[in-house]
Amino acid sequence: MFVIVNGHPHPLPEPRTLAALLLLLSPLGAFAVARNDEFVPRATYDTCDIHQGDRIDIVHPAAGG
């Protein structure tokens, strides 16, 4: 049972919430998250359920023009 994190498969955590996944991944610094191309506000990580095959994008500040 996997989710796709930044394009790579990752085992589903228990409980199957975004908060649990982020606890495992421990992203550094400032970041934001989208699930299946939809923004997930930080305040809803605990209640955001994730499922087999969900695509999770975690992004950070980067240079831009």
């Binding site: 550094l28 400032a30 950070h60 500040p61 831009g64």
Partner: peptide, 13 residues
Amino acid sequence: SLRRQTSGSTDAG
């Protein structure tokens, strides 16, 4: 901009 952390980076921006 916003970008995914690249595989070679340990700093995440």
